[in-house]
Design a protein around this nucleic acid. Sequence first.
DNA 1: TGCCACAATTCCGAATTTCGGAATTATGAT
DNA 2: ATCATAATTCCGAAATTCGGAATTGTGGCA
Lengths: 266, 266
Amino acid sequence: MARRRAGETLPAEAADTVTALTRGLDVLGCFRRGDGPLGNQEIAARVRLPRSTVSRLTATLTRAGWLLHVPETQRYRLGPAAIALGGAALGGLDIRGIARAPMQELANRTRAVVALGMRDRLSMLYLEVVRSDAPISLNLEAGSRISLAFSAMGRAWLAAAPANEREEALLRLRELDDGAWPRIAAGIAKAREDAARIGICCSFGEWQDGVNAIATSFRPGGGLPLMVINVGAPAFVCSQEALLDEARPALLDLARGLEGVLDRPH
Amino acid sequence: MARRRAGETLPAEAADTVTALTRGLDVLGCFRRGDGPLGNQEIAARVRLPRSTVSRLTATLTRAGWLLHVPETQRYRLGPAAIALGGAALGGLDIRGIARAPMQELANRTRAVVALGMRDRLSMLYLEVVRSDAPISLNLEAGSRISLAFSAMGRAWLAAAPANEREEALLRLRELDDGAWPRIAAGIAKAREDAARIGICCSFGEWQDGVNAIATSFRPGGGLPLMVINVGAPAFVCSQEALLDEARPALLDLARGLEGVLDRPH
DNA sequence: TGCCACAATTCCGAATTTCGGAATTATGAT
DNA sequence: ATCATAATTCCGAAATTCGGAATTGTGGCA
């Protein structure tokens, strides 16, 4: 009875990988921001695992506090341990604290939203978001995702990422939605060109209609991967010209200042 | 070769629990907010598992994006998937959005910090934190933890939690630090009394010197567990009297308004 | 009230996968 | 160059996980 499913993505290389753990994590990972509680059946469908297996997995996750069981509806939602993990992960990132002040300054100056992000699989992940007025300084949006292919942030990552990582991402992006590929490829070609020529990548209404953004990447050091900062706003707040002429130099300065900060003594 | 370790906490009841998954989650969970990257050895010590096992586990977690490997120092830190999970967990909690506005109002009125939390194992976990405009603030964010035994928030939970959950928590609290037990027990006895008499629990300088707070609990419904709201501030911002006389009624109102919101049609 | 459909959970034998001690390799310090 | 520390790999043993099928539980509907 072959345990490892036939179409497994990694035929050979996953030599010592703990399958049970991977599967459990997949169950956790299938909870996406915005969707309500999930039943075992729904989960089984998402992670492509037999129901009995999922049943055992969810039971384990619930016992450990990673999932919360809603008895009346027999569904699961992410539990406190999941929240705490995110807090620990975010709390350990000193780069956030270092970047916050200059990001805030830039946000105030441009009246836009400035965000710091890194890649998570096929998305960009916000690590810190600051707004111009910051009446609520809460990091409401830290931990949320944005398109890798169509956002300025994602494109800046693609433009600067190590070749092997980029190629792997592009490959998976393509097989995810082959129809959108021409549009994706065009955007990325332009992005690499922009990055080389003017140091930033753009997304003018391509991620969401009426939203303009520019972004650039840097390497914080300290063993952390490539990171990206973007400046974005509704078109009526920041025109393309405003972003390119005014925000761009400041953004480049900001990124340059953060280059390798974590490696420098202090 | 007995796989399940001798002193396992749950001798019998964990009938179908996926051990490998539990262990992997323990590895993730041993990363606490504030401590830097961890090596395999350190992890092995924390979770009490053989090094070779931990090695395999961390390799698996890294491959899936839950851990980030820092090559030069050979240590691990929590990865993007962990952050994303926290985001998804927090994003799915509608109660945060519902509670935010009235919490903000209360914060402004009292010039204190108002927080919403739930229990996570032996801590209270902040789900939402709202500050007044006043600049002095505690350094607490959503996803961080606070003492179950000594904070107003923790005491409010203990005072209202279902008996079995409370007893289990108290038991583990006691075996965690038997020396502190008398002080813990006294605080909790007082808390239950306060809860019954005036609807709130207090912590005046007991959690941290110079910090006053009061808290009360409510049941949001929707299958969610008991939650707590607190109002707290440095003593020179809010005296005990100010909290008891002014903040208390408003806090009780707030909590009453949230009682069962998620069950009501909308 | 009884029946049906749907979903979750439990059962159980098979055997793959995990486990961990020991050996090995890598790294860095003295 | 040698030693100490830590991570990883190896490998045989067998416990644990796996998943199909049966069972139990739930809610809707006639």
